[in-house]
Computed example of a mutant assay.
Amino acid sequence: MQKSIMLFTIVSFLVSVCLIPLIIKFCKFYSLYDTVNSRKIHSGEIPRLGGVGIVLSFIICATVCFYSDKSLSFFNAAPLLAAGSLIFLFGILDDIVEMRAILKLIVQLIATAIVVLNGYCFRQIFGLMLPEPVGILLTFFWLLGMINAYNLIDGLDGLCGTLALTALVSLGIMLYGSFNEGTAVCFILSASILGFLVFNWPAPNAKIFMGDGGSQFLGFMIATIPLYSSNDNFEYNKFLIMLVIVSFPMLDTIAAIL
C-alpha cells in the first residue's frame, strides 16, 4: 500500500475515534436520540448521529490525502464525494426531522444524476458492452438499491458498519496496485467506520447509532466503487464481484419487501 494511503487510513481511524465521543456529548446536549418504538429493540436514550463522525473523518482525510499525493487524482473522486455529501446531509436532516419518503427519493435521484452526468455508469457486464441508456438505467437502480439496502440493514448494533467495513476492505484489496484512487477511498472509509464501531459494537449497549445519514452514505459510497474505471480483470468481473460483496444487505432488502 502506498505510504500516503496507509498514513491517512491510520489518521482517519484516530480522527473518527476522537470525534465520536464529542458527537455523543453534542447529541445528549440537544437531546438528539434515536426514537424508541415497537420496531426497535433498544431502550433508553441512544444518540443517533454516529454517521457524522464517519463521514467527517473520511472526507477530511480523503481530501488531504488526494491533494497531498500527486499520484492520486482528486478530480476523479470529486463528483462522487459531492453526491455522497448530498446524500449524507439530507440523511442527517432525516435523523433530526423525519422527512417524507418521496423527498428522500428525490434527493437520492439528484445524487444519482450527479454521478451519471459526470460519466460514471456501468458500461459492460462480463465483456458485453451495454447500450448507453441501459447502462444509465442500471446505474440508477444499482445506486438507489444500495443506498436503501444499507439503510434498511442498519437495525442491529454493529451490523451495517461491519458489513460495510467487510465490503470496503475486500474491494480495497482487490483494487490494490491497479486503481489507487479506489484503494484510498476504500481503506480510508474503512478506518473511519472502524473508529465508529468502537462505540457501536458492544451489543446490546451501544453508545451511539449510525443513523440514516451514515448508513445511506455508506451504501452510496460502496455502490460507486465499480463505477470507476480500473484494470481489465476487475472491469470484466466487477458486476458479479459486487453482487457477491453486497449479497447480504441486498437479499435482506428483498426479503423485507416480500
Rank of each mutant, 00 (worst) to 15 (best):
M1Y: 10
K3Q: 13
F8E: 03
I10K: 04
V11T: 12
V15Y: 09
V17L: 14
I20T: 15
C27M: 13
F29M: 13
S31N: 15
Y33R: 08
D34V: 03
T35C: 12
V36H: 09
V36F: 06
R39A: 03
K40G: 02
P47A: 07
R48C: 09
L49Q: 09
G50L: 02
G50C: 10
V52H: 08
I54M: 08
F58Q: 01
C61N: 15
F66W: 07
F66Q: 02
Y67E: 11
S68F: 12
S73V: 11
F75G: 07
L81W: 08
A83V: 05
A83I: 07
S85G: 13
L86E: 01
L86H: 03
F88I: 02
G91R: 01
G91C: 07
M99T: 09
R100D: 14
L105H: 10
I106D: 10
V107M: 03
Q108E: 15
Q108S: 15
A111Q: 05
T112H: 12
Y120Q: 08
Q124I: 05
Q124V: 06
Q124Y: 09
L128T: 12
L130R: 04
G135T: 06
I136Q: 05
L137M: 13
L137V: 06
F140H: 04
L143K: 00
N148A: 07
Y150W: 09
L152H: 11
G155I: 02
G158P: 07
T162C: 12
T162D: 09
L163Q: 13
A164E: 05
A164N: 03
A167N: 06
L168D: 03
V169D: 05
V169H: 03
I173V: 15
N180A: 15
N180T: 07
S190Q: 11
A191K: 00
I193Q: 00
L194C: 09
F199S: 05
W201I: 08
M210G: 04
G214R: 04
G214A: 07
G219V: 00
M221K: 06
M221S: 11
A223I: 02
I225N: 04
F234Y: 14
E235V: 10
N237M: 12
I241N: 07
L243E: 12
L243Q: 12
V244A: 14
I254N: 13
A255H: 14
A256T: 13
